[in-house]
Structure formats: structure tokens, C-alpha cells
């Protein structure tokens, strides 16, 4: 078992009448990529802000290597944070701001300069070394935002929605970069993008309305909602015909998990391909018609849907 680097115990935070985070308890291990998955407003950023010391919790505690971060600036300097919004000094060049923030974290000037050049190279930003941040494109600014969190070589890196607003090219580059950090550093990332979480994270905590709903590896989480594949059928027909189609699907395969979301019938079952002809026939008999159909594997979206009854993007 790897060492626990970061631990939260019953972390809670209220904003007026809204409980943004409720009794969040986590253990994050050294060298893992840990994902916070949840829709916008789920409490991910509030949790992150408490973990990195930007916000004081109403109750609970954050421990890094078993030591509380409360009042200990030295410990939180071992954390690097890439905030969700782009935070750069517009009129400083890429190199200047890396060097400056490195020095603010206590790096000697020479080391700050060395680390700045290294990170610019790693993120393919050498050509923009002497460009002021305000002249960079949105994608390049996001890349800069990311490496600003790393200049002081922190042990724990927190990335809040690192792929938000990225163009495809930058998204690939950032994802590769995050994966390159694995094992060297402990990475905590928040996202509402299930694909990002699935591909990048070793373990995921699903959070909604400030509550931790489930935690585990992506495959563990997907297994919790059942084995097998998912058949998605978009139905044509009126509401009663669609309800009849749902009932027919449930009658055909009682052990399957069947749901109707407006005109989308979702059936999770073992041997989906084998059952498909019968299922289509039953739907036809119910008076509805399949306008579109696909078979796919379970996703984290399904896990979230089962846990909350809502989709991540709703």
C-alpha cells in the first residue's frame, strides 16, 4: 500500500443556506492521479479550495502527511494548484511569470529560472518564452496556467478542470502532460468530463451536491452498476408507446437495468448482442419504433446517472 499523502476528515463548508461540501473524507495516495468527478456546482472547487488552504472549512480538517495545513504555510507550499480560471499577470512574459511565482514559493532565483525553462519546454511553449501573457491564445494561456502550478516542483498537484476551454490540440498536450506527472507526483484533478476522468485518473470520487457518492477506480465504479453492455435505443412514437416499450424490455430480460429518459431507452444487460433481435421485436410489438440504436460499454456517466438519477451535463 502506498503512503497516504493527503487526507481530509469530515470536511464541510456552508455558504449561507447552501451546504457546498458535506463531511468529505478522502485518502489520497502518493503518486496516484485522483479525480473529482461531478457536475458544475457539485462542490469540487470548494473542496479543492479547502484542500489547498485558500478557504477555511467550517468543520473537518485537511492533513498532508498527517499534519494539519491549518496555519502551516510550509506544508501548503508542497501543493501546486492550477485554478479553473486562467490566472496570469497579463503584462509579464511567460518566463517572467514562471520565474516570479517560483521565487514567491521560495525557490532561489537561479533554480526558478531553470525550472521555468524546463516547464516551458515540456509544455511546448519555448517559442512563447518572451511573449507577454496577454498576447497568448486561450489554449496557450491554459497551458501556462497549468505549469504555473508546477514551477516550485510541488509534491501534490491540484488541477481544477484542466481541460476546460481547451482546443483539441492543447487538450491532447495537457492530457499527455498530466499522465507524465503520474508516479512522480500526486495529482488531484477535478472535472465534469467523464471521459477525461476515465482516461486519466487512477481513482475517482464522484461528488454531487457537496456529498461524496462513490469512490474507486474507474473500472470498480463501472462494475458497481452491473456487468455487461449498454444498449441505447432512441424511440419514435408517443409517450404511451415509449412506456410500453420500456415495459416490454423489462419483461423480456428481468435482470437487466432498463430506463427511459424522454425518448432514450437504455438497457444494461449481459450478452446485449444476443438479446438484441428479441428486444427490437418486443419494441415493435409495443407500437414504438427504434429511430436509432447503439451498443456501448458502461461509462462513468452511467454510474453518475444511477447514483443521482441525473446526467453529468444536466
Amino acid at each position: 500500500m502506498t503512503e497516504i499523502v493527503l487526507q481530509t476528515t469530515n470536511l464541510s463548508k456552508r455558504f449561507g443556506g447552501i451546504e457546498a461540501v458535506k463531511n468529505l473524507s478522502l485518502e489520497i495516495h502518493s503518486g496516484e492521479i485522483f479525480g473529482f468527478l461531478g457536475p458544475n456546482g457539485a462542490g469540487k472547487t470548494t473542496s479543492i479550495n479547502m484542500i489547498c488552504g485558500l478557504m477555511a472549512p467550517d468543520s473537518g480538517e485537511v492533513l498532508i502527511h498527517g499534519k494539519s495545513i491549518r496555519g502551516d504555510g510550509g506544508i501548503t507550499r508542497r501543493v501546486g494548484v492550477c485554478p479553473q480560471e486562467i490566472i496570469l499577470w497579463e503584462r509579464l512574459t511567460c518566463f517572467e511569470q514562471l520565474e516570479f511565482i517560483g521565487e514567491m514559493y521560495g525557490l532561489p532565483a537561479k533554480e526558478a529560472r531553470r525550472r521555468s525553462d524546463l516547464l516551458l519546454a515540456e509544455m511546448n511553449l519555448e517559442e512563447k518564452r518572451n511573449a507577454q501573457a496577454r498576447t497568448l491564445s486561450g489554449g496557450l494561456q491554459r497551458r501556462m496556467n497549468l505549469i504555473m502550478a508546477l514551477v516550485h516542483d510541488p509534491e501534490i498537484v491540484i488541477l481544477d478542470e484542466p481541460e476546460a476551454g481547451l482546443d483539441p490540440q492543447s487538450r491532447v498536450r495537457v492530457r499527455q502532460f498530466i499522465q507524465s506527472l503520474a508516479r512522480r507526483k500526486t495529482v488531484i484533478l477535478t472535472t465534469h468530463n467523464m471521459d477525461e476522468a476515465d482516461r486519466v485518473a487512477d481513482r475517482i470520487a464522484i461528488i454531487d451536491h457537496g456529498e461524496l457518492l462513490r469512490m474507486g477506480t474507474p473500472s470498480e465504479l463501472k462494475r458497481t452498476i452491473g456487468e455487461g453492455d449498454v444498449v441505447e435505443i432512441r424511440l419514435a412514437g408517443d409517450a404511451s408507446q415509449r412506456e410500453s416499450a420500456l415495459a416490454a424490455a423489462k419483461a423480456l430480460i428481468p435482470q437487466a437495468d432498463a430506463r427511459l429518459d424522454e425518448d432514450l431507452l437504455t438497457v444494461r444487460m449481459l450478452d446485449a448482442v444476443g438479446h438484441l433481435p428479441d428486444l427490437m421485436e418486443r419494441i415493435r410489438d409495443s407500437g414504438a419504433r427504434a429511430a436509432d440504436m447503439r451498443i456501448r460499454e458502461n461509462t462513468l456517466e452511467d454510474v453518475f446517472l444511477q447514483l443521482t438519477g441525473r446526467r453529468l451535463r444536466e
Binding site: P83, I101, M104
Partner: peptide, 13 residues
């Protein structure tokens, strides 16, 4: 305004 104050706070300046 430019939220760079957050960077100072994170660096415990």
C-alpha cells in the same frame, strides 16, 4: 480583479 491575488495566497505570500 485579475485574480492574481490568488497566486499570492497560494504561495503564502
Amino acid at each position: 480583479m485579475h485574480r492574481t491575488l490568488t497566486r499570492f495566497r497560494l504561495a503564502r505570500v
